[in-house]
């Protein structure tokens, strides 16, 4: 079916199966590979994007449910030459090791900060629990979220 929606501010129309996950629409149809496949079952958070401002697991969102919505991916959050505050903090803290989960971590953190500008450690824990990092960069993710919060406040 033909589905129209907005990705990173640009209107897109794709012709895919109604139940194709948004993850694969982004990666295989639109070529936006910053959003990662990790588990396909909402267990790791690597595929996290924003849909109408909410953090969602794109592996669990069907294409037909994206119709008319606004999707923001890591590519739209900021660019290497124009970083979002969360990305700036991620670079300064040198969070990434393998980096494969970090698109999802950053999108989840950006959604948290949009609603909770100065999160406590407990709020960070609650928001980030679904985002797995096998390399174990959690201490740096926590520090980067606090640093990004300070940037956004300032």
């Amino acid at each position: 079916m033909k589905i129209g929606f907005t990705v990173n501010g640009t209107p897109q129309e794709v012709d895919v199966a109604a139940d194709m996950p948004l993850l694969w629409v982004l990666r295989d149809v639109l070529g936006l590979t910053g959003t990662k496949y990790g588990c396909g079952a909402a267990l790791c958070g690597a595929c996290t994007v924003h849909m109408d401002g909410e953090a969602v697991r794109s592996c669990q969102v069907w294409a037909e449910d994206v119709a008319g919505r606004e999707v923001l991916t890591i590519e739209g959050l900021g660019r290497p030459e124009a970083l979002h505050a969360v990305q700036e903090a991620w670079v300064e803290q040198q969070v990434a090791q393998c980096g494969y989960c970090q698109s999802g971590q950053i999108m989840q953190a950006a959604a948290l900060l949009a609603k909770t500008p100065a999160p406590s450690d407990a709020q960070i824990d609650a928001a980030m629990e679904g985002n797995l990092c096998r390399c174990g960069t959690y201490p740096r993710i926590r520090a980067a979220i606090h640093a990004a919060a300070a940037k956004l406040e300032g």
Binding site: G34, P80, W90, V91, V95, A96, G99, S103
Partner: peptide, 14 residues
Amino acid sequence: QRLDILAKSTGTLD
């Protein structure tokens, strides 16, 4: 600053 850190923070590392 690690060479890959900017790309890994922006989803641009393939």
